[in-house]
Design a protein around this nucleic acid. Sequence first.
RNA 1: GGCCCCAUGGCGGAAUUGGCAGACGCAGCUGACUUAAAAUCAGCCGCCUUCGGGUGUGUGGGUUCGAGUCCCACUGGGGCCACCA
Length: 1071
Amino acid sequence: MPGVTTINAPRDLSFRYTPAVAAELEQRWQDRWDERGTFYAANPVGEWTGPDGQSASAPGYFIMDMFPYPSGAGLHVGHPLGYIATDVVGRYRRMRGDNVLHAMGFDAFGLPAEQYAVQTGEHPRTVTEANIEVYKRQLRRLGLAHDPRRTFATIDSDYVGFTQWIFLQIFDSWYDDDARKARPIAELRGELNAGTRAVPGFPEGTAWATLTEEQQRDVLDSQRLAYVDESPVNWCPGLGTVLANEEVTADGKSERGNFPVFTKALRQWKMRITAYSDRLTEDLDLIDWPDKVKSMQRHWIGKSTGANVSFDVADDHGAPGGESLVVFTTRPDTLFGATFMVVAPEHALLDTVPATWPALPSSPSSSAEPATSSPSSCAEPAEQAESQDLAVAFGKAKPATPAPTATPAFIPPGFAETAEHYAERQASVQGTSTSAASFTGAAVTESPAASSQDEQENVSAIPASWTGGYATPTQAVAEYRKLAAGKTAVERQQDAGAKTGVFTGHYAINPLTGTLIPVFTADYVLMGYGTGAIMAVPGGDQRDYEFAEAYDLPVIYTVAPEGGLPADLAEAYTGDGIVVNSPGLNSPAANSPAAVNLTLNGMTVPEAKATTIAFLEANAIGESTTTYRLRDWLFSRQRYWGEPFPIVWDSQDRPVAVTQDMLPVDLPDVPDYAPRTFDPEDADSMPEAPLGRNDDWVHVTLDLGNGPQQYRRDTNTMPNWAGSCWYYLRYLGQDAFNPKLEAYWMGPHHNATSGDAGGADLYVGGVEHAVLHLLYARFWHKVLYDLGHVTAIEPFGRLFNQGYIQAYAFKDDRGQYVPAAEVEGDETTGFTYNGDPVTREYGKMGKSLKNVVTPDEMYEAYGADTFRLYEMSMGPLDLSRPWNTRDVVGSQRFLQRLWRNAVDEDSGALTVTDDAPSVETLRQVHRTISEVTTEMDAMRPNTAIAKLIALNNHLTGLSGVPRVAFEPLVLMTAPFAPHIAEELWEKLGHSDSLAYAPYPVADPQYLVEDTVTCVVQVKGKVRGRLEVPPSISDSDLQAQALAEPNVLKFIGDAPVRKVIVRAPGLVNIVV
RNA sequence: GGCCCCAUGGCGGAAUUGGCAGACGCAGCUGACUUAAAAUCAGCCGCCUUCGGGUGUGUGGGUUCGAGUCCCACUGGGGCCACCA
């Protein structure tokens, strides 16, 4: 023990736990674990069925980290936080008797390695493999209890083969909506052939056999879960590749590189993740994930229920023209308030628009009783306006020849005033002209030049703001489409809120009212969501309101809160309330055969929704519909460093899967693997895949079942997510799809804590993958599940998001960052660098901020155990917190004291005694065991460590440390600081690694105390304490409390009104 | 703009169901040991105080015998989404 040596004698202390001693013993134990295969996990079948002691007869516990992308920058101290946490859990579970599977692979395809390779001129594989070696070395030094046999990188050829095999599983599947699962495409062919299933895309009753072979292939290809499709995608010229929605940031830039992203129609591979929208949402209920991540995924999938409503597009006479426009709405109850419609610029309705602008009446006669669009009129539904002329005008190019059938029976309030407004505006702009066209609604104050007198007349009939200044709808729509297509996502972002659009010349007929309402196109309506068209209800939707404001369109409020809407309301009303202004027709209008006496007035919003949907369905003009925000996953990239598609294209330019024996399809050598990138602003550039630069590779002759044929290989590569979509299965072994193997490690209820969905028992990683990797992987897993390759319903049964380790950075008065490690001072004295004051910032750790601390520095200065312990004791695992090198010494002191409690620093001799410990010590030991076990189970390493330190501090004060107290402490410390624990365990005389030693179990007899401290409060304030037996009765305790002198003092003369007794811990006396 | 989360000493953070606020660590202070320092060991350590006590968990209110914990509003910080009809 310290202090027993003779005073003044020079002390050697060569057995003190110094960083050098730590480094030596840590590396010695790491070597030993490797040699002995200490952390080999045993499989139940096939390879790796381990020796005794690692038997798969124990429950399997499968732990995972989000595997690293080995960048050239190496690790900083923030990176290993999650790896240490999983290692602690793994070591703990192992001591608790589980067969723990924990290993680490590397996510190695992707942009950063490729970009680095292009810069340095080295091949991406060379760069990546070198980085992996650095990572492996740095991670090994941490002493992670991984099964090294199970490591891999996603770039390994056999791994790529499996990735491609799974791709083909997806390619060869379709989604059976009735069965709610993916099935092999061959089964679809069988059903189509047998006539038990209608041929999609062909008229009812079409026989499969009557289709040509090409048609049949097109039908099947169109149903695959992996398919090629031309549609608007995110094209990033700066990166030279297309990107998934999830890889584009909110401000319309690429997540990698921050380049502008354009929407461009391109032929690309996609994955039908939308088929799984419902299951991906519902099954979130089965898994133990942070609510935050679940909610992010729900949000991203964005399920919303409503109705599709079909509007007839009017002909020249205001009658149904045969064409219909289907919109999706979540508010069918507001259908009476639909005063215009908007279609996305890409909408097919715009392919044909009227040749000329329809006219408006020059002097509306309907102003006698103008209904008003002000909210005050809402509480009392306006009478049916008599603005026949206006209605005719909306439906007709020439008001002189009204067709009786074109007369709507009901004109919503608001239109009349608007028509007047148009006339005024017309008058004000007449005679002015300009060549500048504009689509900014009310901002237009000048009418454009027209090419002919005739057109000038036509244009004059419509507000200039509606036409965008163009002579014909065809021109206006074409120009607007061009404008919208040229916008970057950034510009769209910036324009959000400022509504632009143009009138299409079309009118549609409101199916409930028969009213003719103008159809606009505007880019605030997105082609990819719903039907790409909306009914605009400015009274109930703020975006529609803004558009109505800009284009002088009428506003009808169909919902009013109790007490009515404020008279000066100048926005949409989106709150709850009672439906108003929604009366049905007295008699069906001729041009709206479905319209009958539907009235919603007086209903609540939910009632009105249900009533409207029922009405729409009964009259075949609409139906209840569910829509999702989620889009199909854009799966191809025009980069080199990724998995090639196992697909070839035949002479008819249709995709064909290569056969399984041709896997893996390895990356070819190409003369130049650099991506073809462009001016980041060049929206007109086209993607060019580097794999296309090797003709010998691209053009192949293969026998894919019908004799040798000429094919052209697909030159796309898969996105970097592909490799991470199934890597968890790879940890199970080469034979990952062996059902017994997968069920043992991942199947539902494979151990005491795994739930209905199965999956890995613990998956730890940052929250940044909440919707990217985690959604894609769930999707792939569900396909594999449907096809019978796995038994787990979900890949990750429990997810834990660790926080980030952040750091302080310091800037001098010029705003330059200075090396954080050399800054002196603290919060109270202020911070200085070389004597000059500097200011502190808090944020990420990074080279540019000059505040990086590396694990290597920590190994050197303290050793891996101290480093691990510090990271685990800093605070709750899921909280981000600042790194403070200054604090690390506290963790080191704990380990030194632990060591000193058992080892003489001069001689190295064991000082632990076999004397019987005091009852007090036993109580503290067993209470610590009990509490630490609770904390470990709850994944609260910081509080577990605090209790270990407290126990160690208690032992430090004893004259001799008893073995029965020290051994449990060593075992409980082992998950955090495994090397020193192994060393002490060996010194204590154990020859086996403590990795499999049973975790201490608390003896209940030492958990009960003789007495407990009871707090006596007067009016909620502590005024006295009593030592009482735990079993004391309420009445005895109350009596004792009321006799306590200090308590009596505070009660004084006041009468005791009430006494709250919570035996044995608390009495509160109310006076 | 919408939704969600968070706020405790000089610092990181503790605190079962509402029941002794500040565990554990850092920094700081005192003492022992030492010629001295380091290291170690033993203590102290929210603020105010006339040493009785008062007060205290971002601010203001509420519920309760009792609130860091529950409710409402606000302020500050963070996150996600962002024209999704």
